[in-house]
Computed example of a mutant assay.
Amino acid sequence: MPPALERFMRHRAALASVVLLAFISLACFVGPLLLTNTPIDNDWGAMSVAPTLQGGHWFGTDELGRDLLARTLVGGRVSLEVGLLGTFVSALVGVIYGATSGFLGGRVDAVLMRIVDMMYAIPYMLIAILMVTLFGRAFSLVVLTISAFSWLDMARVVRGQTLSLRSREFVDAARAIGVRPAAIIAQHIVPNLAGVVAIYATITVPNIILTESVLSFLGLGVQEPMTSWGVLIQDGAQKLEAMPWLLLCPAVLLCTTLYCVNFVGDGLRDALDPKER
């Protein structure tokens, strides 16, 4: 067993979180296919029913008789897809941008980092509202809106690591034999950033899921009939006194997912970061 994997296996909270995340992901992606109720089916004889094992509505129903379990699982699938796709875009853009800036250095690094600083100064929520108002609330647009700013932190982290890697002996050897800068970045710098990127990606996933939930809570997220945990939480918050289960069920799953991803990040940090060994 590789030493890094062995160290990760010793992190009990991270290991338990991986199992729980796998179960939640499997339930969200496969569960809706196994349920007899769909998120849009109306059970007119069971409207606003509290969670019960009888009648097939384990999480209860909303005021339209729609099964909350089916809506929560489908909403979880959307939230997880947004989190994973957004993190992939964030890592891809952030690694390329940060590695290029850190490796080239000098004026190029200064210009690229000033661009990042200027983007930090742009009110993110204002841009999100503007994009949703102009182009609608399609799933792809929500992912694009979140990804447009989520790569900034990744770029800074990667740039800092690249600054320390570019003075290493293997980089000097590659320069000496005439390897082009682009090839050095792709073949020598980026592979040595895998641990840092993996650790930071586990921080980015819950941040993006939470951002999507906030946008959906404000009515700027995905559009009906598509739903997400943020949409369900917004709907449940409006009916908290009459039907608290509408808020409780998706909120518990959202919080559990966020905590599990953070614990996995802690485990990866202990396993891959030499400073933490």
Rank of each mutant, 00 (worst) to 15 (best):
E6N: 14
G31N: 07
A242D: 13
V158H: 07
L34F: 08
S79Q: 12
F29H: 03
I177D: 02
V214N: 13
P225T: 05
P225N: 06
A173E: 04
G178V: 08
V116I: 14
A27V: 03
S79R: 05
R156K: 11
A110R: 13
C255S: 12
P244C: 06
G60F: 00
M226R: 12
P250N: 06
S228Y: 06
T204Q: 14
L21F: 08
E241W: 15
P250C: 08
A46C: 04
I233F: 12
L144I: 06
K275A: 14
V111I: 12
L21N: 03
A183K: 14
G45V: 01
G195I: 13
W44E: 00
D266G: 12
V93C: 09
T133Q: 03
L21K: 04
I209R: 05
F263D: 07
R168G: 07
T145G: 01
P181R: 09
V30W: 09
T162H: 03
L92K: 01
F135N: 03
L64Q: 07
G56H: 00
T227W: 10
F8K: 08
A182C: 09
D270M: 10
R156F: 03
A155C: 10
A14Q: 00
G83L: 07
W44V: 09
G106C: 10
L165V: 04
I129E: 03
A91I: 13
S216P: 13
V261S: 02
G56Y: 06
L34I: 09
P250R: 11
F88E: 10
G83C: 07
G136W: 04
A4F: 09
A50E: 06
A198F: 14
A70P: 07
R114S: 08
L15E: 02
W44A: 01
G230I: 13
A13S: 11
S213Y: 08
T38E: 02
L73N: 05
I40L: 05
L85C: 12
V143H: 04
L68F: 05
A50S: 09
V18T: 01
I177F: 15
F217T: 13
C260W: 05
L272T: 10
Q238A: 14
D67H: 04
R77F: 02
N42P: 00
P191C: 06
V30A: 09
E212S: 15
